[in-house]
Design a protein around this nucleic acid. Sequence first.
DNA 1: TCGTGATTGGGCTGTCAAGCCCAATCGCGG
DNA 2: CCGCGATTGGGCTTGACAGCCCAATCACGA
Lengths: 244, 244
Amino acid sequence: MKPTTGVRDPHKLTGKGQATRARILEHAAELIYAKGVHGTNNEQLRRAAGVSGSQLNHYFPTKESLVLAVIAWQAESVLTFHRSEQFACFDSLDAFRAWADFYIGYEHVYQEGCSLGSLASEIVKTDLDVHDELANAFDQWRDIFREGIERMQQHGRISAEADPARLATLLLAAFQGGTLLAQVARNIAPLKDALQTAIDYLQTFATSPDADVMAPQASSVMRKAGDRLDREDANGEHGRLLAR
Amino acid sequence: MKPTTGVRDPHKLTGKGQATRARILEHAAELIYAKGVHGTNNEQLRRAAGVSGSQLNHYFPTKESLVLAVIAWQAESVLTFHRSEQFACFDSLDAFRAWADFYIGYEHVYQEGCSLGSLASEIVKTDLDVHDELANAFDQWRDIFREGIERMQQHGRISAEADPARLATLLLAAFQGGTLLAQVARNIAPLKDALQTAIDYLQTFATSPDADVMAPQASSVMRKAGDRLDREDANGEHGRLLAR
DNA sequence: TCGTGATTGGGCTGTCAAGCCCAATCGCGG
DNA sequence: CCGCGATTGGGCTTGACAGCCCAATCACGA
């Protein structure tokens, strides 16, 4: 009856067991992010996590259960990152610019892609039943953007004409698609262009004085704000995980 | 010295051989599109194409060579489709709307994804040397959009302020990302929102009289043009391939 | 007609990874 | 101190798949 994920109940493990399970999960997430699900076998996992064959089977009876756990782990990681203070709930254009700059500045994004998106596209065609888990994560991710835009509307920072849900979807799609293009091109430019152009569109709805100075159509030439690529400051859990 | 693709030289095959090779390639493209590279084995291929084990090895010595051929085939297919007359070189907003409507109307797009993008994301992390082939295809794809927008500028249909290259990248990224989100959600809505919103942005640069009536920012509420989902007319090679 | 190379058939083998088993050890609670 | 479940180790079996081989047939040209 329970939604058996195939994963051992965490509360039935001792502290040591939980630590081992977490170590496996962490290294699995890293390996799978770098090499893909099909490019990672249990022998690599054993060496990376320093565990023996039977531990994998003990804590994750099947590979599917491990992949499911990694998905949940990555989903939580990326959502936590987007909810961190540095983006202030995405209630300003600057927050969106800072968000774009973060990903534009991380080379891992165009080497390995989005930690969730590349995982999703790799297994979406398999028979693994991960659609609900992934769909939920992407919905929440989009909602973070949507609620931020709605908050900007409530504060009168952008026009009521803007459609927060659609703009949020465009931002997320531009990120996922831009990441794929950047991976293929081995060049961050496509992601940079996609994100900055999407945010430029968001900016055309701005009502603040300094945005009114420029005509909305001219926003594409006023992208100085998006060119801050020299960030090197702390970037929280997600960033460290990406950069590992 | 030659850029040995691992594929047999087509001109060294007789007509019968070429037919067999084409039959294998066609079915391989279809199977791989539906089930992914890792979800397709040579036994399925043999049954689908009605050939025997050694034919696969005869025409495609390795699986990598087959995948490379499929990539080239899909790339040509999607580029030919976008260059077809029905989109008139993407020199008008209507052409972009028609393009979006086409993909929004095909359920295969959110079941199996983009024929090129899903292939790309599945193998971009493997050691297959397909980056150049894929990067070239995506560049050409983006250039089709870019040149269309440039032509619109030359004809005075949209403002000179618009940045064709960046807008083209956004459109392609929105398509790829929207397709991924739609696949995960098993719902066309994310792709529809992403594409229509991206085209709405393009429309804010329009200079034509009927676009001037509406304020650019209001374009998001004037999306009647994007809601034509009742298309069922002929859609050329690419469409038939997708729908097969 | 004959021969050579292209084409086809089916089977075979080596490789690799996932999952499972038995045995040994640890560690907490009684 | 003892017992039992949790934890760890390493090896082994099974299955799947890609790649390869030998033999038979076809087809075009000399």
